[in-house]
Computed example of a mutant assay.
Amino acid sequence: MSPRPDLHRDIDGDVYVFPRHLAGSTPTGDPALAPLLDRGWDLQYDEDDNVYVNAPDGRVRLGYLPEGEDDGLWRINAYKATPFDPPVWGVCFNDRVPTEFVAAFTTSLATTYQAGAYLARPVAGSAERDPFHAVVPLLQQGWKIDRPRWGVFAVNAPDGLGGLEYTTGYLNPAAELSTRDARWHLWAGKSIDRPYWYATASTDTPVALLTALTRCVADPAPLPRWRAETSSYMKGIAQLIPVLPPRPTAPTPLEVRRAAASRRPTALPAPSITRWSTSSRPALPGPSR
């Protein structure tokens, strides 16, 4: 049975999309920018209305690029010194990735940057920085281990409509930052060759950031969307659950007592004038004088 949320808030949508990795993006990227802007990161625009958000020291840069040259809507790079140096790591989300997934990444990025750990390289066998930790949230929700080809470790969604691949061995650092030939490749759709959405992360992307992303992807709760804005591609493979109106809350004991008191009859004052009814008999004539 598909999960249906029990808590009803101000929901931006008229359907829930299940599973959530088939939800697609939202019309605005503001929720994913907010975690960084709330920490005082600098916001800039270019002449094409692309958005750039920079860390206070300029060593992390996010680009929200609706007018970019390809479908890489979100590009996030970290630098050891200045943006003029080659990026230490880079992440890309294409234009259909659920915005909530990007927000999970940027929320973790804001915290990791504040702690000075945004350049923490993955270390195999480490208690906290082993790349395998990023896969655990997916395995805990029933994603299955796969070996699709030599040199690639993968986990696939239970419905077969999504997956995460980790490539072993040497990779071209420049290609990792500009193509889908990256260390990490997360996707959803009918096949990895032509995914509906995808995200990539280069070799030295901190495990804490990747784990925040996979934890959000693995969350079993569906995501709210507007049916009219849901792509026909996803309508054909995802479950759309109507959003129900809010359920009335149970009354408190005080409210029950007040309601009962309001229903009690109140005593009527004694009448000062005799009241006649249709059943009253007429007065008898008095004795004649």
Rank of each mutant, 00 (worst) to 15 (best):
G58M: 09
R129V: 06
R258E: 15
Y233I: 12
D181M: 10
S280M: 04
L161G: 01
P222A: 13
L164K: 03
L223M: 14
L139V: 09
D46P: 04
D85E: 14
G151H: 05
S178P: 01
P86L: 14
P173E: 06
L213S: 03
G142I: 08
Q114P: 02
P87A: 14
D159R: 02
Y118D: 13
S231E: 07
Q114F: 09
P220E: 11
T26E: 15
L65Q: 04
H21D: 02
W150M: 14
R9F: 14
P31H: 03
N50L: 02
V51M: 06
G169L: 07
S2F: 14
P285I: 00
L139K: 11
D181H: 11
Y113E: 05
T99D: 00
A55Q: 01
I192M: 10
R263I: 10
Y118I: 11
Y170T: 12
A23L: 08
E229T: 12
P224Q: 11
P269Y: 07
A124E: 14
D146I: 07
E128V: 11
P5Y: 11
I192L: 10
P137V: 08
R227C: 08
D42S: 14
L139R: 14
N50A: 05
S231W: 05
S231V: 04
I145V: 14
F18D: 13
A34D: 12
T28R: 13
Q44R: 12
T28N: 07
V97F: 00
V217S: 02
C216V: 06
A259E: 13
G142S: 08
R59M: 12
P246H: 07
F93N: 03
G189S: 04
R149D: 09
G162R: 04
T82A: 11
R121G: 01
T249P: 05
D130A: 03
D12C: 11
K144Q: 13
G29F: 03
G58E: 04
E176K: 01
L139D: 07
G236E: 15
G58W: 06
T205D: 01
P122T: 10
Y45D: 03
V102M: 00
L138V: 06
A110Y: 08
P83R: 10
H133S: 09
A103R: 08
T230P: 03
M234Y: 07
I237W: 01
L240A: 06
Q140H: 13
P282R: 08
V123Q: 14
M234T: 08
A261Y: 04
A103P: 00
L65F: 06
S272V: 15
A157L: 01
P253V: 09
P27I: 00
I241D: 05
E176N: 02
N77E: 15
L7H: 15
Y166D: 06
P220R: 12
D85C: 06
